[in-house]
C-alpha cells in the first residue's frame, strides 16, 4: 500500500477548482434566483400591504364620510322637520286667525242682518198694525169720537200760552180746521168752541182730509195743532220705530 501525496494534492486541487466553478455556475445563480423571488415576493407583499393600508385608510375615510353624511342628513331632517313644524304652526295659527276673523265677520254680518231683519219686521209689523188700526178706527168715526176730539182740541188750545194764542189769532191768514169728514151741522159748534178757547174770533176755514181717519186739527201757515188718529198713529209708528 502506497499513498501518493501528489495524487492527494491533485485531487484536492481538483475538488477546490470544482468548488470554485460550481459556486459560479450553480450555487450563486440558483441562490440568486431564490433571493430574487423572495425579494420580489417581499416587494409584492409590501405593495399589497401598502395597498391594503391605503384601502383601509380609504375605507376609514368613506366610513367617516358616510357617518358625516348620516349626521348631516339627520341634522337636515331635524331642521326640515322643525321648519315644517314651525311653518305648520304658523299656517295653523294664521288659518285659525283667518277663520276666527271670518267667523267674527260672519257672526257680525249675521247679527247685523238679523237686527236689520228684525227692525224691518218690526217696521213692517208696525205698519201692518197701524194699517189695521187705521181701518178699525175708521169704522169708529162716530159723533161721540168727534166730540171727544173736539174736547181734546179745545184742551190743547187752552194749554197754549196766551202769547201763542194771540199770535195765531192776530195773523191775517186764516186757520184751517181739518176734519176727516165734512163737519156739516157741527161746524158752528166747533167754530164756537174754538173761538171760545182762543178768547177771540179767528179766521177759520173748514177743510176735509180723510187721511186723518178721525179727529180735528188746526193748520196755519206757521202752526199745526195735531189732534187726530192719523197723528196718534204716526206718533205710535215713530215710537215703535225708535224702540226698534
Amino acid at each position: 500500500m502506497t499513498i501518493d501525496l501528489w495524487g492527494i494534492g491533485l485531487q484536492a486541487i481538483n475538488v477546490l477548482i470544482l468548488v470554485w466553478l460550481l459556486s459560479r455556475v450553480l450555487w450563486r445563480p440558483v441562490a440568486g434566483a431564490i433571493a430574487a423571488r423572495q425579494e420580489k415576493a417581499r416587494a409584492v407583499i409590501d405593495d399589497a400591504q401598502a395597498t391594503q393600508a391605503n384601502a383601509d385608510a380609504a375605507m376609514a375615510e368613506v366610513t367617516k364620510a358616510r357617518a358625516d353624511i348620516g349626521a348631516e342628513r339627520t341634522a337636515a331632517l331635524d331642521a326640515a322637520r322643525a321648519e315644517a313644524d314651525t311653518a305648520a304652526r304658523a299656517a295653523l295659527a294664521e288659518a285659525r286667525t283667518k277663520a276666527e276673523a271670518i267667523l267674527a265677520t260672519a257672526k257680525s254680518r249675521i247679527a247685523h242682518e238679523t237686527e236689520a231683519t228684525r227692525k224691518a219686521n218690526a217696521v213692517h209689523a208696525a205698519d201692518l198694525s197701524l194699517e189695521i188700526a187705521a181701518k178699525l178706527l175708521g169704522q169708529l168715526n162716530s159723533q161721540m169720537v168727534q166730540s171727544a176730539f173736539l174736547s181734546q182740541l179745545i184742551e190743547a188750545i187752552s194749554k197754549l200760552s196766551a202769547a201763542d194764542r194771540a199770535a195765531l189769532v192776530s195773523g191775517l191768514q186764516h186757520i184751517d180746521v181739518v176734519s176727516a169728514t165734512d163737519a156739516g151741522a157741527d161746524k158752528d159748534t166747533i167754530e164756537k168752541a174754538i173761538c171760545d178757547a182762543f178768547g177771540s174770533t179767528p179766521n177759520l176755514r173748514f177743510v176735509t182730509d180723510p187721511d186723518l181717519i178721525a179727529g180735528l186739527e188746526l193748520h196755519s201757515a206757521h202752526f199745526t195743532l195735531r189732534n187726530s188718529w192719523q197723528a196718534d198713529l204716526a206718533r205710535i209708528r215713530k215710537a215703535v220705530q225708535d224702540a226698534a
Binding site: 499513498i3 494534492g9 484536492a12 486541487i13 481538483n14
Partner: peptide
C-alpha cells in the same frame, strides 16, 4: 468511483 481511491478521499479530507 474516485472515492474508492485513498488519494481522492484523503484529498477531500485535506480540503
Amino acid at each position: 468511483p474516485p472515492t474508492a481511491q485513498l488519494e481522492t478521499d484523503a484529498g477531500l479530507a485535506v480540503l
